[in-house]
């Protein structure tokens, strides 16, 4: 690959973990970005906060467990993970037990976060 420059990228996840292939697609895009030395952060919004449920077991669905794969992201230097605080509250999520260390943000802060990146990729 001949990447022109290093860019800052925010992956904005908005879908539940097993309802479509998007959660897995986002993970793959995040890992590829890190592998090619881009600066990549994640924001879980809306139904995507369910990807952070602790103790997921998607084995009966015949799919790989998203939570377990998310837990490996810090190994690839993906350390800044943000969560839509309102959505997390709606689903009564205990983020202290999430597979990743996250930072909850309100609506205004999410907007402030988004404008700071070169690119947003929506999943």
């Amino acid at each position: 690959m001949t990447a022109a420059t290093k860019k800052t990228v925010l992956l904005v996840l908005r879908h539940s973990p097993y309802g479509s292939g998007l959660a897995k697609a986002a993970l793959d895009a995040a890992l590829a970005s890190a592998a090619f030395d881009q600066s990549v952060d994640l924001l879980f919004m809306g139904d995507a906060v369910l990807q952070l449920q602790p103790d997921q077991d998607s084995h009966p669905l015949g799919m790989k467990t998203i939570g377990r794969q998310l837990a490996s992201l810090p190994l690839y230097d993906i350390n800044h993970v943000y969560v839509d605080a309102q959505a997390a509250a709606r689903y009564n999520m205990d983020l202290s037990k999430a597979p990743l260390q996250t930072r909850p943000l309100g609506g205004h802060d999410m907007h402030q976060l988004m404008v700071g990146y070169d690119h947003l990729l929506g999943f």
Partner: peptide, 21 residues
């Protein structure tokens, strides 16, 4: 192609627009 081409796409572009996410 591989996912590296997605990374190259946004690294080489002023704008990356997502459709269908």
């Amino acid at each position: 192609s591989g996912l590296g081409q997605l990374v190259d796409a946004y690294a080489s572009s002023d704008r990356l627009i997502t459709f269908g996410g």
